[in-house]
Design a protein around this nucleic acid. Sequence first.
DNA 1: ACTCCACAGGAAAATTGGGGTA
DNA 2: TACCCCAATTTTCCTGTGGAGT
Length: 433
Amino acid sequence: MTNPFFKYKESGADADLRLSVLSSSFIPDSFPHRSEQIDQMVKILSSVMRNSPPSNLLLYGKSGTGKTSIAKKVSNLLKEAFPEKVKIIYINCQLNDSTYSVLVNAANSIISNEGEKIPLSGWTVERIYNELLRQIEKSGSFIVLILDEIDKLARKNDGDSLYIILKLTDDSTSSRVSFIGITNYTSFLETLDARVRSRLNQESIVFPSYNASQLRDILQERLSLTGLGNMVEESAISLCAAIGAREHGDARKAIDLMRISIEIGVRDFMQRIGEENVYKARDNYEMNVLRESINGLPLHSKILLLSAVVTQDQDRDHMITGEIYENYKKICDELSVQSLTSRRIGDLLSELDDQGLIITVTKSLGRYGRTRVITVPDHDDMMKKYLLEDEVLSTFKGIKIGKQHRLKMDPDDTRSQSVSEEELNDVLSSKED
DNA sequence: ACTCCACAGGAAAATTGGGGTA
DNA sequence: TACCCCAATTTTCCTGTGGAGT
């Protein structure tokens, strides 16, 4: 028999390589519709030429507007121009959301000798701070510290974390440390206290959302880099752009969709990529997002979400905190996992809500107390499937839902517990911002 | 007008677990 | 090894609350 993989080898491997241009980690050389922001950034950072440290800088804009890519690109160019003079440190504050881990990561990226690296726990914050300071002085370079998703850090400890880190500028004797903060939230500054705000907001650059035609330009430019441009129909590009534009002008999403569309097409040996590929890609994309966010959940959040899913399947009228908690405990029993307290579960429910995995609406049920009414968005059982992929949850067989509460209401009653579609849409649209 | 449910969510204490020091 | 320091997580304790029922 002829090797069935050969046809994939011919058509696929090469395309995969070229598609890396469409991956989210790829940083292109040019950024259409962003020359203004780049110029501004270059101007501010160029002060190192005059041996004076750049002002601190804050980049605003929704996700997929190019903040991170451009910050990385411009700072790399700076380093390229002044390799001896400049050190760039990039830290994602979503992954490193404490004073401690930011300082450790910053220090460790300056320390070149493996053996001298600071352990990920154990030291006092003060000690790391001083060590970082020492390393900065020792290096003699300008340090540009990029804090991506800086809002995640600001929420910690009343903003003390950020205050301590920003103090590096003052405490380094030659004051050679500058910060570039990146955030999705325009109102971010208002949430900070004055001492942090004035330090951070010396300069700011706004990254407006892209519109559909700008997204089309971006897609076309990227496609030309892949060399696959002539394969993709104009209408497919427009559709990707339109979907990205609807999603607050998100270039990342538009580019991801383009990539997945092509991947799907290549896999099916299609010569042309059309709109139908994009629609498939969109479904695929959304399922992947769901799967990844579920995979990344801590164990108890997974069990809690499973409890919500199972409860909704069997007993739509009792989707309130107390009921979900009772069923959560049953599942914990079945899985031989020690359950958490209801207080903690309350916080986990809020987190799941923030991540969009469930929708909660705080409601007062009068005599029956004040609680959150919970809805699991419909994903055709995909949520349950992804949850059961977890090693611990995979042994889950099912639980009997017992009615704990006396909340059953008249189904005609508009005050019934289950959230109507209309209410759901209200909540969803109000959360979009 | 008043009561009282079933929580929400703030504050602080307790626990856990990594690492340092003697 | 025993003991200390620290951050993160979780529990304990608590006060607050919207509105159906009385």
